[in-house]
Write a protein that binds this DNA or RNA. Structure first.
Lengths: 189, 189
DNA sequence: TTGCTACAAAACAAACTGTTTTGTATTGCT
DNA sequence: AGCAATACAAAACAGTTTGTTTTGTAGCAA
């Protein structure tokens, strides 16, 4: 890919992220983004059809990345000293979030975090399925599997949201423990 | 309140609800609402400062109403034949939703249901606290009370969301059972 | 170097926003 | 019944945003 393309794409993402931390998505105009990214009007529209598509692309990059690294982790690329058991993926995710990679925290705690939490949850489902589904755990509870996957993903996302809202006073270990405490009793019935 | 006021306010809410079921919040212009509600431009701005305020007011009316009726229910105004135990409030809520009072279903399953689910969750917290807090149940789990309240509210909202996404194939009783199955194991530790 | 591509600048029509002005119809009250 | 208040409509407004087009420049890769 052309260096120029990557550069402006990054400039747009960066400006957009910055703006999102300042004001509401609805109140951000394409003009604002253009000004902040310091690019030409035509250039923006050459990259993104509309503001909504920009958001979509940003989310995809963001969550594809965070989930992918989390799913790749149990194989040994861990940066942290922590025991990886079956639920380690979640612990790793919280660590990864705490790092604030790509300013994801700014987005997740922005005024419009709804959007990002939604994407987060959607991508999480794949991870949840790969964690639990093939182990037969989901079938023992007497609840529909889809429902459980949805519940587990939602619970993790909402836990993260609660963590952020409270300024992340807890450690990744604590938060992961909270989360697992809400999930494990259901699966162990 | 002036009949005319109530009438136009209702016309605006109605048009807005209709539009929300058709397209995204961001894609709805004030002009669209004005046209759909068949009112004068000045009239809209006399009622609502901006589109965002309209949304806020609509949500408040909606969820204040639904939560209030749910909280008032255990005292005997039930329209349905069902046993009310401690968790009956949730069962009643699902019944109430199924009725589709004030087209709340259209909104909760619209493209922008994020917004409404958020409001729903916020208002639910009060109800959750009144259901569980003073019974000491929340303290026995070893988890922070705020966290649990958030978790329970989230779980209910996400359950409802899952229910709607699947076209409400389950009965209110089933869905409530699903929900309680995710919550009760935590509280009974 | 040459051709291709990304970008900038400016101008454009169309639409939307929020306000103001002027005038009409309803309403609540006496 | 009649009066004053007020809710509303219509039109015009300046300002902004949107997405496109046109023209020209600079960077890139082969």
């Amino acid at each position: 890919m052309d260096r120029r393309q990557k550069k402006t794409r990054e400039a747009i993402f960066s400006a957009f992220t910055q703006l999102l931390s300042e004001k509401n998505y609805n109140q951000i105009s394409v003009q604002d983004i253009i000004d902040a990214a310091d690019i030409g009007r035509t250039t923006f529209y050459a990259h993104f059809e509309t503001k909504d598509f920009l958001l979509k692309d940003l989310c995809e990059e963001l969550f594809d990345h965070i989930i992918d690294t989390a799913m790749g982790m149990p194989k040994g690329q861990s940066y942290y000293a922590c025991d990886f058991d079956n639920d380690s993926v979640f612990l790793h995710l919280t660590y990864h979030l705490q790092e604030n990679d790509r300013n994801i925290l700014e987005l997740l705690s922005s005024q419009n975090n709804d959007i990002f939490l939604r994407y987060f949850k959607q991508n999480l489902k794949v991870l949840v399925i790969s964690q639990y589904a093939d182990k037969g755990v989901l079938k023992s509870s007497g609840l529909p599997e889809e429902f459980l996957v949805n519940h587990i993903s939602s619970s993790f996302v909402e836990t993260v949201y609660w963590w952020l809202s409270g300024k992340m006073k807890e450690t990744p270990e604590e938060i992961t423990r909270y989360f697992l405490a809400t999930i494990e009793p259901i699966l162990k019935t």
